[in-house]
Amino acid sequence: MSDNNAAALLHRDSIIIDGLIIAKWDRALFEDMAKGGLTAANCTVSVWEDFQATIDNIVEFNQLLRDNNDLIRPVHTTQDILRAKEEGKTGIMLGFQNVHAFEDQLGYIEIFKKLGVGIAQMAYNTQNLVGTGCYERDGGLSGYGREVVAEMNRVGVMCDLSHVGPKTSEEVILESKKPVCYSHCLPLGLKDHPRNKSDAELKFIADHGGFVGVTMFAPFLKNGINSTIEDYVEAIDYIVNIVGEDSVGIGTDFTQGHDQAFFEWITHDKGYARRLTRFGEIINPKGMRTIGDFPNLTQALLDNGWPASKVQKIMGGNWVNVLKDVWGE
């Protein structure tokens, strides 16, 4: 059997999970997920939106789930992920990149959990009622934030720290009784950027039972828009060497289908206020241009000399294990 065939078969037979996608949700995107063999994905439905606007986003996504139920299905438990695999569909985990939608109401957390929200990032780049993002002076986790972490633990919503400041992240890691994650990050050791995590930060989250999803967002990769899938594999390998092969997964941060207005919205505080950063041109790594290219990653990890068992863990198996720990089912 050729190496290409072996990779294709391994990809087909594995659980493939993307721990963060913030794409333009439509049928073309779901068709590309099918082409990429995605078993499940954490799909962002809230960034700057408040409670009402986030509810509206979920209403829209529920309609998409109904209209495209030949391609996608909702995920509330890890059993739903396994069912998606059996059905040949992509399981949709709803996720937040900011807990702004919880507003100042702890009771909203359980409401969103019942609507299918399984992962929520504690802050998106700036300050909110819970803590601080990575683009400003970090005041740490607030008293209310500690209540939010406890309630997220209770109802089974995973705490995500990808865009969160280092002090707030450290305090969430220590406060949480369940594993927390960086759903989509890259190592500071390969590229100096405020969104990337130091070796010490990566080791700290893993030492406390946490999880690291590795992104391929070009501005944070060593070679920027000139990056290739090999650069992405290098970053995954770098993190695995720090935290171990059981604590790492994929979280691409695919922004597929979005226009420049979207990037203006996410790079300004609250979507409209001060500018936080400029990404410049965004070109995904060569070999991973679209979600449909996901099989290339399985091939690239095998080409890197990884055994099939290790590839299966990183491509999705580890995500299933940590989500089961957090969700309880």
Rank of each mutant, 00 (worst) to 15 (best):
G189E: 07
F254N: 04
H11I: 02
G249Q: 08
D26A: 11
I58Q: 08
S169H: 10
R274E: 13
R146T: 07
G244A: 10
A7S: 14
A53S: 14
G328L: 00
R195Y: 13
N4H: 13
A101S: 15
K197H: 10
F51T: 14
I55N: 12
V322E: 01
W319C: 04
R137P: 03
L20S: 08
I266C: 06
A53I: 12
T277H: 10
F102E: 06
E31M: 02
G317V: 02
L71R: 04
L65W: 01
P187G: 03
E234M: 13
I55F: 13
R83S: 12
D237S: 15
C185P: 05
E60P: 00
Q121G: 11
L82G: 02
G257D: 06
Q121F: 08
A40C: 11
D138T: 02
E175I: 04
T90A: 01
E31G: 00
H258W: 13
T290W: 04
G257P: 04
N318H: 11
A300W: 07
H11Q: 05
V164C: 10
I266A: 02
V117R: 09
A123N: 10
L302P: 08
G213F: 05
D80T: 10
Y272M: 11
R12C: 01
G257Q: 04
N98P: 03
R137Q: 14
E103V: 06
I58N: 02
H76W: 03
L297E: 09
T90V: 00
N196H: 12
Y108P: 00
M216G: 05
N321V: 00
N318K: 08
L297M: 14
G36W: 01
T255N: 14
D138G: 01
Q63M: 14
L94P: 01
K178R: 14
A235H: 15
D13G: 01
R27W: 12
F262R: 04
H258F: 01
A41Y: 08
D32H: 00
Q260S: 15
G305D: 08
R83Y: 10
K191C: 14
F51H: 09
F96S: 05
C43G: 00
I16M: 12
T228A: 09
D231P: 06
V148W: 07
A6M: 08
I229P: 12
